[in-house]
Amino acid sequence: MKLDEALFTAIDLNALFILLVVYRERGVTRAAERLNVKQPAVSNTLAKLRVHFKDPLFIRRSKELVPTAKATEIVRGLAPALMRIQDVIRPSGG
């Protein structure tokens, strides 16, 4: 399997992780708090992801963000991939 370098330069891994946290937290502010970053940083990342994926990713409903079908599809593939990456980058030893 050949990696598509253009895809990896078009979007960064941190942005995908932020998407996953927003998905789990169902809110930008809660995700920002969990990630220990400012809310505008999460909002800006989501804006870039919306352009990249050509999808709104989340719809505001009452006080939470509801993922679109596309966001759910992305997260379903992303979560196990990020777990594998975590295993690879985790420092070895005690």
Rank of each mutant, 00 (worst) to 15 (best):
L13G: 10
E64A: 14
F8M: 03
G94K: 14
K63Q: 15
N14P: 01
L20C: 05
T68D: 10
R34P: 03
P40G: 13
G77I: 06
K63Y: 13
L19D: 00
R76N: 15
I74K: 04
I89A: 09
V21P: 01
E5C: 03
I85H: 09
A32C: 12
V42M: 07
R76V: 14
P40I: 00
F17A: 07
L49T: 01
T45L: 04
L16K: 12
R34C: 00
F8V: 07
K48M: 00
L19Q: 00
E64P: 00
P56A: 09
L7D: 00
L46M: 15
L13W: 03
D12V: 04
V75N: 09
F8H: 10
R84S: 11
S43H: 02
G94C: 03
Q39G: 05
V37E: 06
R26C: 15
D55L: 09
A31N: 10
N36E: 14
L16W: 02
L19T: 02
K63R: 15
R26K: 15
M1E: 01
T29V: 06
L46H: 02
E5P: 05
A47N: 09
R30A: 14
E73A: 15
H52G: 03
G77V: 09
V66N: 02
G77K: 14
N44T: 08
L46A: 05
T29S: 12
I89F: 13
F58V: 06
N44G: 09
V42T: 03
L46E: 00
D87T: 09
L78R: 05
L82F: 03
D12T: 07
E64G: 11
V37G: 07
T45H: 01
Y23E: 05
D4I: 06
E73R: 13
V75W: 11
I89Q: 08
Q39P: 12
N44Y: 12
V75K: 08
V28H: 07
A69P: 01
M1V: 07
H52V: 05
A81Y: 07
M1G: 13
L13D: 04
Q86N: 12
V22I: 10
A32P: 08
V51G: 01
L49V: 00
T45N: 01
L65D: 02
